[in-house]
Simulated scan of single mutants.
Amino acid sequence: MDVNENQVEYADFGIRLGAYLLDALILAPIAIAYNYLNFTYFKSFWTYLLFFLLMTLYKPFFEFKFGATLGKMACKLKVTDHLFQQIDFEKSLTRSLIFIIPSVLNLAPQYLAYSNPSLMDSGSFWQFNTLISQTYPLASLLGCLTGIIVLVDLIVLLTDDMKKQRSLHDRIAKTYVIRDK
């Protein structure tokens, strides 16, 4: 289906932020519960890694397969290429790389933490996470880096002067987020 650019309504900052927050509201409780169960019962880096892979592939898979994450679907948005066609997995993965790379780098401190008996014997899940930051400062640094990347991505989206509301990761992958009519 050929789409004329005049027929396209670009998703604005507010609706994109709403979709992002919906995804966070959907995924954060699942991630916290899963990681809590892993720390409490399994205490396994490999269990952590499995869930990490699923969470990391959520955005690229959904945007490739369905054209949108659950948050974008709820807001009636879709991700397209420069011709306003559905994106392939490579483009979807490219779009997500600025978020994936810091997360992948955080695997090293997580592996070390799950291999550290004194951390695994900590009293609670919350204490375990605090001790990771204290014992492995790289984990905190990577968390800050991720926050900075998200902030820069939102600033680029908010300040787009071309009125196409493209974020940094849209520009990297040459994608657009549009209203799905």
Rank of each mutant, 00 (worst) to 15 (best):
D121N: 15
M120T: 13
Y111F: 15
P117T: 12
M73G: 01
C75D: 03
F61E: 00
L97V: 09
S118C: 01
G67M: 04
I101Q: 14
N106H: 07
S133M: 13
L50T: 14
N129P: 00
S44Y: 06
L112K: 12
S133N: 15
F125K: 01
G143H: 08
G143Y: 14
S133D: 15
S133P: 01
T69E: 10
Q86E: 13
Y48N: 11
L154R: 01
A68L: 08
L141D: 09
L154G: 02
F45V: 00
I101K: 12
D153M: 09
D121V: 09
I98L: 11
L49G: 04
W126V: 14
L49D: 01
F61G: 00
Q110W: 07
V150G: 03
I87W: 05
K76V: 06
F66H: 15
L97Q: 11
R95D: 05
D88E: 07
Y41P: 00
G71P: 09
F89I: 02
K43S: 10
L70T: 04
R95Y: 03
L49E: 02
I132N: 10
Y48A: 01
A113I: 04
L154Y: 13
F128H: 11
G123M: 03
G147R: 03
S115T: 13
I148L: 15
I148Q: 11
L53N: 06
P109N: 12
I148E: 11
L107C: 10
L145A: 14
L49P: 01
T56R: 00
P60T: 03
F61P: 00
S103Y: 11
D121M: 08
I148V: 15
I101E: 14
D88V: 03
F42R: 05
C144R: 13
W46M: 10
K91S: 01
Q110C: 14
F128A: 04
L54Y: 09
A113C: 11
H82G: 12
M55Q: 08
K76R: 15
L138F: 08
T69C: 14
L142M: 09
M73I: 13
F51N: 04
P117Y: 10
D153Q: 10
P117H: 05
G143Q: 12
H82E: 15
